[in-house]
């Protein structure tokens, strides 16, 4: 494989990886705080893309306005999901909330089918993102630069919120010990809502960019990327935001490279991630950067 080809695949891998990373952040933040696998997160990702479609076709918004609106609305949906389906179960056994999350996932997916139909929908893409540029020998899609850059900026914003604001301090406190945070006067429910909002907004951004890259919208489009992002979060160490980013990028990169180098294995592409999940859980369940959670006897 020539260097040019390698660079091209590298950019593709980075693009896919940053999309995974943006979703994985939502999983890891919610898990860090509530010990809940937010099964509906993949549908939040899907909704982000669908809201853009809705904005441009139903309300005739320009695409860039539609995108911003979609991110905001999706964040609202994420918060709503927590309020309705998870918050009443805070004191219930952990699996109850997970079953509720599975229910929400099916609900949102099928509601989208009811609203938009199950047929794949085409989404508008600005042409300049699709026109390959020639950089030396490398043919580069502007999209594969645009997506990682924007993702990086969003992550910088997130880091700022988590480490430089009072709300971020609250998040970190709750993820250490939710009960003590309560007693110390952290407004736990508001911070949890904020967490869901931020996680959902990032997932929506990822969904929208995903739609630019793979311009077919389908109600089930969230399942596989969502599951892989979850795997990325586990790989990076669930609860750790840098872990989610690193895990996402590594997973996306490996996936593209594996298919590029071993085209025969393309059929096993989706199985690869699941095998990875099982392997991590067995060998190092705390992932690359996660803290150890232990059960007391």
């Amino acid at each position: 494989m020539s260097l040019a080809m390698f660079l091209q695949h590298g950019l593709n891998g980075l693009t896919l990886g940053s999309l995974y990373a943006l979703i994985a952040i939502g999983y890891t933040m919610v898990y860090g705080i509530l010990r809940l696998i937010n099964f509906a997160h993949s549908e939040i990702f899907m909704l982000g893309a669908y809201f853009v479609l809705w904005g441009t076709t139903l309300f005739f918004l320009p695409w860039y306005v539609a995108m911003v609106v979609a991110v905001v609305v999706t964040a609202g949906v994420g918060i709503l999901v927590d309020r309705v389906a998870y918050r009443p179960l805070r004191d219930a056994p952990r699996i109850s909330a997970l079953i509720s999350a599975i229910g929400v996932s099916f609900f949102l997916q099928n509601l989208t089918i009811v609203a938009f139909g199950a047929i794949p929908r085409e989404v508008y893409r600005p042409l300049w993102l699709e026109t390959p540029m020639l950089m030396g020998e490398v043919r580069v899609l502007p999209l594969t630069i645009f997506v990682p850059t924007l993702s990086f900026l969003l992550m910088l914003g997130l880091v700022w919120v988590v480490y430089r604001t009072k709300a971020g301090l609250g998040m970190r406190a709750i993820s250490k010990d939710i009960e003590t945070s309560y007693i110390m006067g952290v407004s736990v429910n508001r911070i949890i809502s904020l967490t869901f909002g931020i996680g959902s907004a990032l997932a929506a951004a990822s969904g929208i960019m995903w739609a630019l890259r793979y311009p077919q919208l389908q109600p089930v489009m969230g399942s596989i990327p969502g599951f892989k992002a979850f795997i990325a979060a586990v790989f990076g160490g669930i609860g750790s935001i840098p872990g989610a980013v690193v895990g996402g990028v590594i997973l996306g990169f490996t996936e593209i490279m594996a298919v590029a180098f071993f085209p025969d294995l393309a059929g096993y592409r989706d199985a690869f991630a699941f095998v990875l999940l099982i392997a991590i859980l067995l060998i190092k369940p705390t992932g690359l950067m996660g803290a150890k959670l232990e059960d007391k006897v």
């Binding site: 109850s96 099916f106 099928n110």
Partner: peptide, 20 residues
């Protein structure tokens, strides 16, 4: 299309919320 699973997923959520 999709309505059937909407109803069922909603039912599951309600059972988990109100009659665990």
């Amino acid at each position: 299309p999709g309505m059937r699973m909407v109803v069922f997923s909603l039912a599951l959520i309600c059972i988990i919320l109100f009659r665990r």
